[in-house]
């Protein structure tokens, strides 16, 4: 429901003439529910900014939140909700911060309840609802992007590719490997091979509790991709249960070298490179 141009003008005037009372009441209501988690000065600043943007939009003749005239108001609301999301306020607290405006407005409408006034109030309520929903949406989007960022950081942290020896890199995999993570790990491993010029990679899965077909396929494809690039992979630390799963799923590990532990794998690689420098040994036969 949109405001009429008249209503929007009248409300703008009311909000301007009674600015002090409205913002004060508004601040009080929000402060009540925040219980001191935001400084009074900061809160006052936020409320005044919202108030100013709202008056500005109404005086320009905005009839609802999607209007061209309300661009600035939307920006201020978005900034407000992003701030709330980052500071750990809940979605409800954020939205009620906006809804509190209704109550604040009621306090300046006073007791002279003629019908016109009531209509204005209802229309204005609809605008505030829009504002609340907009806030809510921005809040959720901010949270979602925060979560996505954290997930990415976690992924980075949980999948280090380390250089073990000259020409040998290793990825110690710890924790559950889902398809997305397996893919990220494998891409990073291959890139590290290029960056360090290492012809050997050890994929250690000691810390992986289980593998499913998809994850096993990812590992296999990585080994094949590494070969295409001119590097060899050794898989170490296969637990008994995983070995059983691999056989049960009918996954063919073929001629891929597997070793019991990371230490065994490294010894294997060092022996290969040692032999290779003194006498010819085809890497393919390893």
């Amino acid at each position: 429901m949109a405001l009429s141009a008249d209503e929007s003008g009248r409300l703008g005037e009311l909000l301007t003439s009674r600015a002090e009372v409205v913002t004060q009441r508004w601040t009080e209501i929000i402060a009540g529910q925040l219980r001191g988690r935001l400084s009074q000065a900061e809160l006052v600043r936020q409320v005044q900014e919202l108030h100013r943007a709202l008056v500005d939009a109404l005086s320009k003749g905005a009839v609802d939140l999607t209007a061209e005239e309300a661009t600035e108001l939307r920006a201020v609301l978005a900034e407000f909700s992003r701030g709330q999301a980052r500071q750990g306020f809940s979605a409800t607290e954020t939205a009620t911060g906006v809804f509190a405006l209704k109550e604040a407005l009621l306090s300046v409408l006073g007791t002279d309840q003629d019908a016109a006034m009531l209509r204005d109030y209802v229309s204005f309520s609809a605008l505030v609802d829009q504002m609340g929903l907009f806030t809510f949406e921005t809040f959720v989007r901010t949270r979602e992007s925060l979560i996505a960022d954290q997930a990415e950081q976690l992924l980075e942290l949980s999948t280090p590719v380390v250089k073990l020896w000259e020409g040998v890199v290793a990825v110690p995999l710890v924790g559950t490997l889902d398809s997305a993570r397996a893919q990220v790990v494998m891409e990073r491993l291959l890139q590290t091979l290029v960056d360090t010029g290492s012809p050997y990679a050890i994929i250690d899965i000691t810390g992986v509790p289980a593998v499913d077909t998809q994850v096993a396929q990812h590992i296999l494809k990585t080994v094949v991709a590494a070969r295409l690039m001119g590097a060899d992979c050794i898989i170490s630390g296969i637990r008994p249960q995983i070995a059983q799963t691999i056989v049960a799923l009918g996954i063919e590990f073929g001629d891929i070298a597997t070793k019991a532990s990371l230490a065994d794998a490294l010894r294997h690689v060092l022996r290969l490179t040692g032999v290779e420098t003194s006498r010819r040994q085809s890497r393919r036969e390893a």
């Binding site: 091979l193 991709a225 690039m229």
Partner: peptide, 15 residues
């Protein structure tokens, strides 16, 4: 000897 294949290219070839 073919050298310098990029990781993304290798992954795509496997697929």
């Amino acid at each position: 000897v073919v050298v310098g294949m990029r990781p993304a290219v290798a992954i795509t070839l496997v697929e």
